[in-house]
Simulated scan of single mutants.
Amino acid sequence: MTTEQLLSWPAPSRSRGREPADPRFADGTAWIDGKLVPVAEATLPLLDWGFLRSDACQETISAWDGLLFRLDDHLDRFWRSLERLRMASPLSREEVRGVVHSLIAAAGYDNAYVQIIMTRGRPPIGSRDIRLCANRFQAFCIPYVWIATPEVQQRGLHVHVGSRHRVPAASVDPMVKHYHWLDFELGLLEAFDNGAETVVLTDGHGNVLEGPGFNIFVRQGDRLLTPRTGMLDGMTRRTVMEICADAGIQVEETDVPVEALLAADEAFLTTTAGGVLPVTSVGGRAIRNGPGPFTAQIHAAYWQRRADGWHGEPVDYAAASAILAAE
């Protein structure tokens, strides 16, 4: 198959294969205060420190063709974040698993994007004692999200290297999947101003780290480089490293200077919202091979393995019935 053919699969398909449990769930679902509600009705208390102070963590989980991908790994990482933030979940791990299934089942989606969230909650009014907060769990489900359209995936993304730096690991632990995104948001605006579609931020020492919702890989000859510290250990990043190990492709976790990205033979992004996405240019400079053979091979392997059920858990489409009946 050609590079173009490998990158064209799978074509983004319809999200819903079943009717929603309630017509109000057609656009998505949410879990708020122990109840399933339409995503448009999901709310967060104004005084929750998750909103006021970005004191929260999350996991983004995808389903494709009715199979949840790496759900146990996502739950492991969610509980790691809770421990590092010294939060306690009001739901057990298996209860959270049930919520994920119920959200997708109620919407009737085959292809879904689910986010599970823990916020700090709030202390009594007038207090700033973080120990008095009751942590709050909530979640939502919407149709599967793509960072890039099929057309952009075919020709590759235009990436901008931001002038600002990622929040340093000494300040905010990057191994917690958090919402400290103002650096990303402002970096995106800078990227748009420069005609690019997304941004990658650096560590302040000339090394690229990550972008809004993705990790990055750079090809040098017959090996791939990916940042080793200062970024989230992304689930798709982990998947790509497993695919490369099986394919005999060397991956080196190391410092990746901006110059290495600019001189790359290939570059691609890894994200739950799209899998493996090729990069065509950085800072207006064309990547040598554009969407190249390594990218195409790994992209195709990623989606083939998902289609084969690798790390997959079938969505329990009966999961929402009991919850809705009890409401």
Rank of each mutant, 00 (worst) to 15 (best):
M1I: 11
T3C: 08
E4I: 14
Q5H: 11
S8K: 05
W9T: 14
P10K: 15
A11I: 09
S13P: 04
R14M: 07
R14E: 10
S15W: 12
S15V: 03
G17I: 08
A26L: 10
D27T: 08
T29I: 04
A30K: 04
K35R: 15
L47C: 01
D48K: 10
G50T: 05
F51P: 00
A56S: 14
C57W: 06
I61C: 06
W64V: 15
D65M: 07
G66T: 06
L75G: 02
L75E: 06
F78P: 00
W79Y: 15
R80G: 04
L85M: 15
S89P: 00
E94C: 01
V96C: 02
R97C: 01
S102Y: 03
A107R: 06
G108P: 04
G108C: 07
V114R: 15
Q115L: 07
Q115V: 15
R120P: 01
G121P: 05
P123W: 12
I125D: 12
G126K: 14
G126S: 12
G126H: 11
R128C: 09
A134E: 15
A134P: 01
A134S: 14
F137K: 09
A139M: 09
H165P: 00
R166E: 10
R166Y: 09
R166S: 11
V167F: 01
A169P: 00
V172G: 02
K177G: 00
H178G: 06
L186G: 03
L188V: 12
N194P: 02
N194C: 06
G195V: 00
E197K: 00
V199Y: 01
L201D: 04
L209D: 01
F217P: 08
L224F: 08
P227K: 10
P227S: 13
M235K: 05
T236Q: 09
T239P: 00
T239C: 13
E242H: 13
E242P: 02
D246G: 05
G248H: 10
I249P: 10
V258Y: 04
V258L: 12
D265I: 13
D265H: 11
E266W: 03
L269H: 11
T270Q: 08
T272N: 14
L277C: 07
P278W: 10
T280F: 12
S281Q: 08
S281L: 08
V282E: 05
G283C: 11
G284L: 07
R285Y: 10
R288V: 10
N289I: 06
P293N: 13
I298C: 10
A301H: 08
Y302P: 00
R306A: 11
H311C: 07
G312E: 01
G312M: 04
G312F: 02
A318R: 14
I323G: 03
E327M: 14
